[in-house]
Structure formats: C-alpha cells, structure tokens
C-alpha cells in the first residue's frame, strides 16, 4: 500500500513539474514576448530592452524558469499589468466560485447519473436503456454554449423565471443569489450527467456479468438486493476513476459556461486574459488549473486504492 502511494506521489510531482514547464514554454512562445504585450505595439526597441532587463526576461530561459518556479513555490503568481492586480489575488477571488460551480454540478450529476446508469444496465437493450442513451448522446453532442443559450431563451426570455447572468460580486454574493447560479449549474450538470451515465452503464453491465452476482441470485437474493448490494458497490469503483478522469472535461466546460453567463470564475478570467494576451494571468491560471487537475486524479487513484484492496496488492 505505502509503496503504491509513494510511487503515485512521485509521479504526481513529475506531472506537476511538467505542467509548469509546458506553461512556461508556452508563454515564451507568444508572439512578441511579454514586453510587447505589456508595452504595446508602438514601444521602442530601447524601451523593450529596458523592460526585459528590469524583469529578467533577458536572462537564459532556464534561469528565468527557476526564478519563476521559486516565486510559484512562495505563492507569488506574478502581477497583471492590465488589471493592475496580483494574479494570486485574482485567483483567490475567482477559484472558489469555479469550485462551487463545478462541485455542485458534479454532485447533482452523480446523484442523477448513477441510478440512471444502473437502471440502464439492468434493463439493457430495452426502451429505458435506448431512451436514456439517446438523450445522453444528444446532450453530449450539443455545443455547450448553444445549450446555455437555449436554456436562457426558455427560462430567462420566454418564462422570465431566472436571470441570464450570474451574480457578479464576491463569493458571498454568489452564495446569497442562488437564482443566478441555477442556469450555469444546470447547463454543466446536463452535460456531466450525459458523460457519467455512459460510464456507469458500462461498469454496471460488467459487474452484472460477474460470478458473485450469479452466486447471490442462486442463493435467492432479490433483484433489488443484488443491484444495490453487489452491482452498485462494485460499479462505484470505476466511478471514482471516472470522476478523476472527467475533471479536465468539466473544467473545460466550466470555461464555456462561465463565458456565456458572465460567471466571474477561473474560466472567464482565463478567457479574457487570452483575448488581451495578459501573460501573467494565462500562466497563473493554467498552472493552478493544471495542478488542481493532477491532484484531483491523484486523489481519485488513492481513493480507489483505499476502497479496492486488489489495486494495493497488484502493484
């Protein structure tokens, strides 16, 4: 067990370091470099040279990377000249909101998708199964921004029931105006449910073919007992992995949803930074999101090992 954890932790350290390298290389590839982006297209070569020197951009790339990494380790994510704020402060303001959005959507999606997927597996190739599969495919195949707008058309424009824009204030403001959260959460939930039912269905179908199911049924266990006790418990294992694997997908989805509903989270921060070529923010958000994703999948793997003794002994 401990050997597995050490090995997995070591891998995560490598992955997190790798993410920082990729992001660092990316921002150095941006056209014109940071000086051009901050000083504007009309800056003189002398001004650019002075800026580069003052910020250490004229030093070797490796040296710049090490300095940047040192700053990261102390929580210094850089400074956005365009927003005149430190990136760490911006992220501290935005991150909790995205975690809230993604968290609620994931939670509701799980509660809805697991029973649905189980029902599909039990009634495989029957009307229920086909209907859920069809609906799931349609939601999965919709461009997320289109789905958002359709929900806005129905609930905000036609019915006038819900606001088409998320609350703009701080975290407390978002919490105290839940009506503005409904549509963004709903959009993200619908797509996540579509994704989760597919996984749950196939993992439950596999569990249904196992010997212990046959044994339980041979011993006279009722269908409900078999499904809840044996199939659900055993198909929950792959679901843990599924949540870990889908974190990047859901975070990508959050980016689109945030930009449609003007939800002031990490995704919107990143998107506006991409449009204004605000490097420090691009760097900072990508590192935070990448590290969070890597840690998420680490957590999922560790949880899996805790729950499933076969994983521990296999490695």
């Amino acid at each position: 067990m401990s050997k597995f954890i050490v090995r997995r932790l070591w891998q995560s350290v490598l992955v997190v370091l790798g993410v920082t390298i990729v992001v660092f290389v990316f921002t150095r590839l941006l056209p014109g470099g940071p000086a051009r982006a901050i000083l504007g297209p009309r800056a003189t070569p002398a001004a650019i040279a002075a800026f580069d020197h003052a910020n250490g951009y004229d030093r070797p790339l490796v040296a710049q990377y090490v300095v940047w990494l040192g700053h990261l380790a102390t929580g210094n994510l850089g400074y956005s000249y365009k927003l005149n704020q430190s990136v760490a402060a911006l992220i501290a303001d935005r991150l909790p909101k995205t975690v809230l959005l993604v968290g609620i959507a994931n939670l509701i999606a799980l509660v809805v998708a697991v029973p649905l997927g189980l029902a599909q597996a039990v009634r495989r190739n029957r009307l229920t199964d086909y209907a859920v599969t069809g609906v799931a495919f349609v939601f999965y195949s919709m461009p997320l921004f289109w789905l958002s707008i359709l929900l806005v058309i129905v609930f905000s424009i036609d019915l006038g029931a819900l606001p088409p824009q998320a609350p703009q204030g701080d975290f407390l403001d978002v919490l105290t105006h839940p009506s503005g959260l409904v549509l963004p959460v709903l959009t993200l939930t619908l797509v996540t449910v579509a994704l989760f039912t597919r996984y749950t269905r196939s993992s439950a179908i596999e569990a249904l073919t196992q010997d212990y199911v046959r044994t339980a049924r041979a011993k006279g266990a009722s269908t409900n007992l078999v499904v809840v006790h044996h199939v659900l418990r055993n198909s929950l294992l792959p679901i843990i992995t599924m949540i870990g694997l889908t974190i990047p997908v859901v975070v990508s989805g959050a980016l689109v949803v945030e930009s449609v509903f003007n939800f002031p989270g990490m995704g919107l921060l990143f998107w506006s930074a991409a449009q204004t070529q605000d490097y420090p923010i691009l760097l900072g958000t990508t590192v935070v999101v990448g590290v969070a994703t890597a840690l998420g999948s680490l957590l999922a793997d560790l949880l899996y090992a805790v729950v499933d003794p076969r994983i521990r002994s296999a490695r």
Binding site: V15, V16, V22, P248, V256, T286, V289, T293, S297
Partner: peptide, 9 residues
C-alpha cells in the same frame, strides 16, 4: 502532463 491541462485552456 498534457492531459492535466484542460483541453480548452
């Protein structure tokens, strides 16, 4: 490493 960075980012 590359999978850790969400696709749209």
């Amino acid at each position: 490493i590359l999978l850790s960075i969400p696709t749209l980012f």
